[in-house]
Design a protein around this nucleic acid. Structure first.
Lengths: 218, 218
DNA sequence: ATAAATTTTTAGATTAGTCTAAAAATTTAT
DNA sequence: ATAAATTTTTAGACTAATCTAAAAATTTAT
């Protein structure tokens, strides 16, 4: 039986390894888990023993097939619960992450299947992140960051890179949500800030905002 | 911060003390928690230290006001989740207990408030047990067991005492659910079995079934 | 009312996950 | 290429929750 802590480490390794297939260092893992390197080492050894990761001393860890399956399943649960919280319980998209962190550990395949059906088999969560299907397959969409947009083109918002509540609340304040139409008017050479038109209103966003907003040509 | 284990012990103490106000012995608690008496002693000491119970050596434990509040809140969450699982996800009433045991530990007052509203502020769970409101108040309904029924009277099913999946499946097999009309035809003096008419069909139920089925005069 | 049976507590050990501090290996810089 | 800096691991200790075995208290039975 896998423990809650093991599951969280596996999820962190998955995210740090960029969808599963590069080595993750002990320090990076410790940082992500808000713990000390020594704890990460211990855990990685345990995960290796259980065959969830391959681990080489001083080199880092990488998920095995079985570890990857676990990670993807946790991510699936996390994102389905987020959809539930936003679509059914009317939470705002900036409130759901912590709750989904708890709900993702509920163990029941049947529950997830039924929740998935109840929600209409959504392919993306409230932040635009893809929800793996029950076979673990993701639907990737073609997206770029606002920072990469062409001038005078029109896009729609399809996701965020940073889904911290601070960033999401910034977007809320500016009435930007998934699907919002964005016209790119001008890019300032000096600081890479971008002038856009959203909801009939012109505004300027910093480069750091632009880097974290995913858009798609309409 | 209260741990998951502490919360489960508090819930067990609540149930064993019959709605909160009689002493619970260490042995009874250990039995309910499927653990050893020594573990129950240790935990009860810890709960006493945190002021969730009053504990006297060799005499047992009883919930304090704050312990009782915690217990009732966990029960509220458990029963609301059961309603969600049955009403929204279409689980059968015999499948939801274990899942609710997991879901009841999700920590978020806002989630519970929103779930409660989403479900239409239900007063009873799928087994007929009352759901405490957000102030911790229960709506008790006037009910008796089928074993206490009068001959030739008509009742409806309003709950179960034993909500094990075995018993619930027995009821499923006989098309008895909450609200089902039950006519009491005859009581056998020898073994206290009862002949009833349900869904136009006559059947005999054992005393042990009758003791576990709650009914109300129609 | 005293012995026997039962219940409860204590003592000491174990496991999971964490920590600090120190040692070892690796990487970076001169 | 060797020293300095950094990263990683090891060693030993701590807490929460559990266990077994033994001691202590209480209850039951004669």
């Amino acid at each position: 039986m896998i423990t809650l802590t093991e599951e969280n480490y596996i999820k962190a390794i998955y995210h740090l390894s960029k969808h599963g297939k590069e080595m993750v260092s002990t320090n990076a893992l410790a940082e992500a888990m808000s713990t000390k390197a020594s704890s990460a080492t211990d855990m990685v050894k345990k995960l290796a023993e259980k065959n969830y990761v391959d681990y080489k001393k001083y080199q880092g860890a990488i998920l095995t097939e079985s570890g990857s399956t676990i990670a993807i399943n946790v991510i699936r649960k996390h994102r389905l619960w987020e959809v539930f919280l936003v679509d059914k319980l009317h939470f705002s998209w900036d409130e759901v992450h912590e709750l989904a962190e708890q709900l993702e550990h509920i163990k029941s395949q049947k529950l997830i299947d039924k929740l998935d059906a109840f929600l209409g088999h959504p392919t993306h969560d409230p932040h635009g992140d893809p929800i793996p299907d029950k076979h673990g397959d993701f639907t990737f969409i073609d997206k770029i960051t606002l920072a990469q947009a062409q001038i005078n083109a029109t896009y729609k918002c399809v996701g965020v890179n940073d889904s911290s509540s601070e960033f999401l609340q910034y977007l809320n304040n500016n009435k930007i949500e998934l699907g919002t139409k964005i016209e790119v008017l001008h890019k300032e050479a000096f600081d890479s800030s971008i002038k856009i038109k959203v909801n009939e209103l012109e505004m300027v966003v910093s480069n750091s905002v632009a880097q974290n907003l995913y858009i798609q040509k309409t």
